[in-house]
Amino acid sequence: MTLATFRQSRWFSLVWIIPALIVLAGVVVAIAIWLRSLPGVQSFLTTYPGRSELPAGTPVGFPAWLAWQHFLNAFFILFVIRSGWLIRTTKRPAAYWTRNNTGLLRTKGEPQRISIHQWFHISVDSLWVLNGILFYVLIFVTGQWARIVPTSWDIFPNALSAGIQYASLNWPLEMGWVNYNALQVLAYFVTVFIAAPLAVITGLRMTPGLAARWKPLERVYPVQLARLIHFPVMLYFVLFIVVHVFLVLTTGALNNLNHMYAVRDDQSWWGFGIFVLSLVVMAVAWVAAKPSILAMLAGLSGKVRR
């Protein structure tokens, strides 16, 4: 690739974006360190250490079903994002799928033809939603909801405190087995109860075939609004995943991975081993999810044409 070609590519913007982000991060860290030197801020951090009290009776630790839920959610969201990105960027799909029988995906009596990427996106989305519904039921039945739902207004000053601690590189004490810090609670709450429902609601509004069934709501909920919201929500999930993985690996990787994958609170290597195995499964599925394999799977429920 020549310099002129590189300047015209989408990657050229990274030449200045990455250094700009590094400089911005340095400025934020410097300001946070300066703030922590102020007596008033030190008093604030003492009053609000970054963690709110949990309601009485909140479970300690993580049950096995939550570890499975975590893996399945990570697996499905990986391919939800991948297929969504392919829908947005692929000009000529490798194949198109048409449903065998009549049903939801139809327009004016005829089955709706969609790209193989749209079929994959809808299929994986359906699994992700089913897994999410099961997650909602289980967290409320078992009381795990109290760990990710704010129950006191002091969550906000504590979140600010945790943010200052992160930004100053003097990070909050990690106690994930017992209680997340306030910034984590807010991030999990937004992800589970705001971003995920938004992704589903806007995705349904844009689904080929289903979109026509929303016509009576066009004035109050136009498809353009759904498109305007759906893509930023995807970007939010990408950002959340990047930050989440970064913090898991930098705030006590063995302990955190044991919490999420081995449901134990120790420094053993079990969680790390299961985590690596889950990455292998994801990598194999990523390689296998090529158009020829997708077309074969899609052919089980409809007609696939190139």
Rank of each mutant, 00 (worst) to 15 (best):
L228Y: 13
A226R: 09
R205K: 10
L235M: 09
F237V: 11
E218G: 07
A226P: 04
L249E: 01
A226K: 07
F246H: 05
V245P: 03
R205M: 07
V238G: 06
E218F: 12
L235G: 00
V248H: 05
H230D: 01
V245L: 13
L228K: 15
Y221S: 10
L225M: 12
V243I: 10
Q224H: 12
V248I: 14
H244T: 00
L225Q: 08
K215H: 12
L228I: 01
G209F: 06
P222M: 06
H244Q: 03
V233I: 13
M206P: 06
P216V: 00
I241A: 15
Y236M: 02
T207Q: 09
R227P: 01
V242E: 11
A212M: 10
L204P: 02
A212F: 12
R213E: 04
F231M: 11
P232F: 04
A212D: 15
R205P: 05
L210S: 00
L225K: 09
F231V: 12
M206W: 02
Y236I: 01
V242S: 14
A226D: 01
Y221M: 12
M234L: 13
P216L: 00
T250W: 04
P232V: 05
F240M: 00
F240H: 02
V233L: 09
V223D: 01
T207A: 13
M206N: 09
I241R: 09
A211C: 02
F231N: 10
T250C: 04
P216G: 01
L247I: 14
R227M: 08
F237M: 11
E218A: 15
P222C: 06
L228W: 15
M234G: 13
P232N: 03
I241C: 12
V233P: 04
P232D: 04
V243A: 13
A226N: 03
L249N: 09
L247F: 14
Y221Q: 06
P208E: 01
I241E: 14
L235A: 08
P222D: 04
V223M: 11
G209D: 06
R219H: 13
P232K: 01
L247G: 07
V242N: 10
F231P: 03
L217N: 02
V248D: 07
L247S: 08
L217G: 03
A212S: 14
F240S: 00
H244P: 06
L217C: 04
R219N: 14
W214C: 08
I229K: 06
E218Y: 12
L217F: 15
P208L: 01
V223H: 12
P232T: 03
E218C: 05
R227E: 10
A212N: 15
L210I: 11
V233N: 05
R219L: 11
L225W: 15
F246N: 08
F231G: 08
V223R: 14
P208F: 03
G209R: 04
V223L: 08
I241S: 15
T207D: 09
K215T: 12
P232W: 03
L235F: 05
L249W: 02
T251L: 11
V233F: 07
R213G: 00
E218P: 05
P208M: 02
L235Y: 07
L217V: 09
L228A: 13
V223W: 12
I229L: 12
T207E: 04
M234F: 13
Y236W: 06
L210T: 02
R219F: 10
